[in-house]
Design a protein around this nucleic acid. Structure first.
Lengths: 244, 244
DNA sequence: CGGAGTTTGTGACTGCGAGAACAAACTCGC
DNA sequence: GCGAGTTTGTTCTCGCAGTCACAAACTCCG
């Protein structure tokens, strides 16, 4: 059962601090970073895994395991230094410097995203807003002028943009994605309710508002069915009531 | 140790069509439903698992497995009837009738959500917009009047609301969540970058825009590091070059 | 200086989810 | 009516992720 053979290269040590962070861990690192930022704002210089886990809303064992993928940045018997760990996580994620971002589709959602302060304060800088509608162009949104969609390639090249946000209607999403990929963008955050197909090497993350609501609705339905069932089972243990 | 004690009811058959749908499947059912709706709009009456899987962007085996949790709604050798399957998925999710939804926090994002047509077209009806800021109250957004946050309990009771959306700043999110739970809401969609603590029985789903971007940034960083590394080992056996 | 207490980092175990492969079941053509 | 072809539903296997539990390592105090 020595399943040591699956690694890619030389089995140097237990785990190289720069390789192979599980996807589930990557998704939690930003949460930890935010919790650490919050602690730092309260002038807390150090914390235990238990405290940080509570602040981040996860299990402390999971947090320690996640952090161990980055390296050994804690001190046993003491805990983690907030600033030091913050920097290490930021470095691992790659947000020690700002990433330029463009937003395509300046409708209601696009405007909200452009005005969203969370982007700029967490390692991202919106460098351009684009929209295909002529009446949008030249308008100022969040201190930026809306530019024509045709300028996409030019802007991406000039600003070295590698991350794009799509907030256009679903019917236009694939075209926008194709144009982004063609211009050299390799990471896309898609708010349009559409399945995007992109070449290998391009990452797409999807945020779908109505899907989130539908998942909640499913659980609501089950809660309602459960309580109704519980009420019905009070007088009768009937289980054969399901007819075809 | 007959571990029968954990389940709620009687373990009748292999899998009751109304029990125990895995969470990962639940998250995909809305995607299937959307793909089916798209097919129906193109007047396609029936489809194979392969076609539907492509439209939904998943593996066909996974799709069939997911659908099998609902029951046997396909016909071997033929495929699935689009309308019939749509209805069955909608019924399972619980969106055959509309769910009333309230939105608390009518800033940029809240207004975008209120105007988002995807909610109303997919089983949800925004019944009220609430905001604590006095200058917001009485304003009309998306055809609805913004009402004071203090009216929350009254509205929830009157409209039988069980789903609430939080789009307030992070500092206010927990208070809003507490008020929602107190008013009887049992499912929350949270856009605020904060960890919410709610009592058991209340579902919270979180949509965090900057976390999504940070996950993309992580992969971008790795891509950059990888290509730099590849450039450094040019003399070694070069792998396939991605044609940009 | 040494032991007690504390906290991290990690190995072992368990359960869920993804994917491949195959049997069951349906249609169509002859 | 029957065989060939097609497509679903299910079983099996593998890998990832979550949790527990504990050894290692550090601090503090007497």
């Amino acid at each position: 059962m020595t399943a040591r053979s699956t690694n890619t290269g030389e089995g140097s040590g237990a785990h190289d601090p720069h390789r192979d962070i599980p996807e589930a861990t990557v998704a939690r690192l930003p949460v930890y970073l935010r919790a650490l930022t919050s602690l730092a704002e309260r002038n807390i210089a150090s914390c235990s895994s238990e405290e940080l886990a509570t602040a981040a809303g996860v299990n402390s064992a999971k947090l320690r395991k996640d952090l161990s993928y980055l390296g050994s940045y804690g001190t046993r018997g003491v805990g983690y230094d907030v600033d030091y760990l913050s920097y290490q996580i930021a470095r691992e994620i790659g947000v020690t410097h700002d990433w330029p971002v463009i937003i395509v589709g300046i409708g209601n959602l696009g405007q909200a995203l452009a005005n969203f302060s969370g982007f700029s304060s967490r390692g991202f800088r919106t460098v351009a807003l684009l929209d295909a509608a002529p009446q949008m162009q030249g308008q100022a949104v969040a201190g930026l002028e809306v530019r024509p969609f045709a300028d996409l390639a030019e802007i991406v090249a000039a600003e070295q943009v590698s991350i794009g946000v799509i907030s256009v209607p679903a019917t236009a999403a694939q075209d926008v994605a194709d144009a982004m990929v063609g211009a050299g963008i390799s990471s896309i955050l898609n708010f349009a309710p559409a399945v995007l197909s992109v070449p290998p090497g391009v990452d797409v993350r999807k945020v779908d508002l109505s899907i989130e609501l539908q998942i909640l609705a499913y659980h609501e339905s089950r809660k309602a069915a459960e309580s109704a069932e519980a009420a019905a089972t009070v007088d009768n243990g009937s289980e054969e009531g399901i007819t075809a």
